[in-house]
Structures are given as structure tokens and as C-alpha cells.
């Protein structure tokens, strides 16, 4: 029974067209991201399947998954919210936004709410310092200029 869906394999195949035929490993990062999108996190079984699909040793795939910050190596809440608190953002309210969310959700960084809805993470520079405070939802949706009102709205929207 395959953990990767036919659609996921189709997406990985598209990534593979970007690289020379003998360099399938180059698609490892995107394949892991595609697998994570589908399952929420990367279990060993899932990573083994990616390894098999790309003809890589499983350990080479684990190395990639553990090196890059955006892979989830354990289950997260339904919405992983990553707030940038690096200096340029902090100067424009990034830390305040993170503290507000901690208080509102009742959790600290690297924790998940009891209802499994939210996981809060501290992020490093997202390359959007001019839009501070900035946060990412599930690695893909960037939210900018996060005032208290916008944070409230976002949490309400995601709860639904």
C-alpha cells in the first residue's frame, strides 16, 4: 500500500523533468515537501517511500529532512504558524506579534494547542522584513503586517 498518492507521484515526476536523468536526487527536497503537504509530517515510512521512488538510500533522504527547517519530523497541529522574530522584524513588532499569539493560543513556541488546531513556531528570516510583522501558515501562506486585529482575524479564519 503506497503512502504517496498518484497525484503526489505526478507532482514529483514533474519536478524530475527539471534535472538530468541521472540526477534524480535533485528532486528530493521537493518530493519531501510534496509528501509533507499530503501527510502533514514526514514519518520514516514516508521518507523510505520517497527514497525508493527516487532511487536513493533512505539515510540520504533522512539527512535532507533533518537539515532543513521547514520539514516536520513529527506531527504538528492542523495549522503550523511560524512567526519571524529576527532583528529587522523585531524592530517592527515581530516579537510582540509572537507574544500576542502565545498568549491568545495559550502555548509557547514548539507547542501545539490541546485541540490540535495550532502549532506555534519561531521562524528565522523569511526575506520579507519590510512587511513586518510576518508569519507563515503551513510553510506556504505568508501573512504580512500582522497587527493585533489581523492576528485575531487570522486565528478566527483558521479555526473554522
Amino acid at each position: 500500500m503506497s503512502l504517496l498518492s498518484a497525484l503526489a507521484k505526478q507532482k514529483i515526476d514533474r519536478e524530475l523533468t527539471k534535472y538530468p536523468a541521472d540526477q534524480k536526487q535533485s528532486a528530493c527536497m521537493s518530493a519531501l515537501a510534496i509528501a509533507q503537504d499530503e501527510h502533514g509530517w514526514l514519518s520514516n515510512e514516508l521518507m523510505d517511500e520517497v527514497a525508493q521512488y527516487l532511487g536513493m538510500a533512505p539515510v540520504a533522504v533522512y539527512e535532507v529532512a533533518t537539515f532543513y527547517n521547514m520539514y516536520n519530523l513529527k506531527p504538528t497541529g492542523k495549522h503550523k504558524v511560524t512567526v519571524c522574530t529576527n532583528l529587522p522584524c523585531a524592530l517592527s513588532g515581530g516579537v510582540d506579534a509572537a507574544e500576542y499569539l502565545k498568549h491568545k493560543l495559550g502555548i509557547d513556541f514548539r507547542e501545539t494547542t490541546a485541540d490540535g488546531q495550532f502549532t506555534l513556531m519561531e521562524g528565522e528570516c523569511m526575506g520579507a522584513c519590510g512587511d513586518a510583522p510576518v508569519l507563515l501558515v503551513n510553510n506556504k501562506r505568508m501573512c504580512s503586517f500582522m497587527s493585533k486585529e489581523k492576528l485575531d482575524q487570522l486565528v478566527e479564519e483558521l479555526k473554522k
Binding site: K18, Y19, Q23, K24, Q25, S26, A27, C28, M29, S30, L32, A33, L54, M56, A60, E63, V64, T66, F67, Y68, N69, M70, Y71, E124, C125
Partner: peptide, 26 residues
């Protein structure tokens, strides 16, 4: 072609970036 990173500041270093493009840790 476009290649999407996944969160590692070090990959801005050019040879780390090459390693990453090859599907390894950066």
C-alpha cells in the same frame, strides 16, 4: 528551471546552494 529551498540560511552560500541543488544537506 526553478528550484525551491526549504529553510536553511546556509544555502545562500554558493557551494552549499550547489549541494542543496544536488539534493543533499546544504
Amino acid at each position: 528551471f526553478a528550484h525551491h529551498g526549504y529553510g536553511a540560511y546556509i544555502c545562500g552560500e554558493e557551494t552549499a546552494l550547489l549541494e542543496s541543488l544536488e539534493g543533499k544537506k546544504g
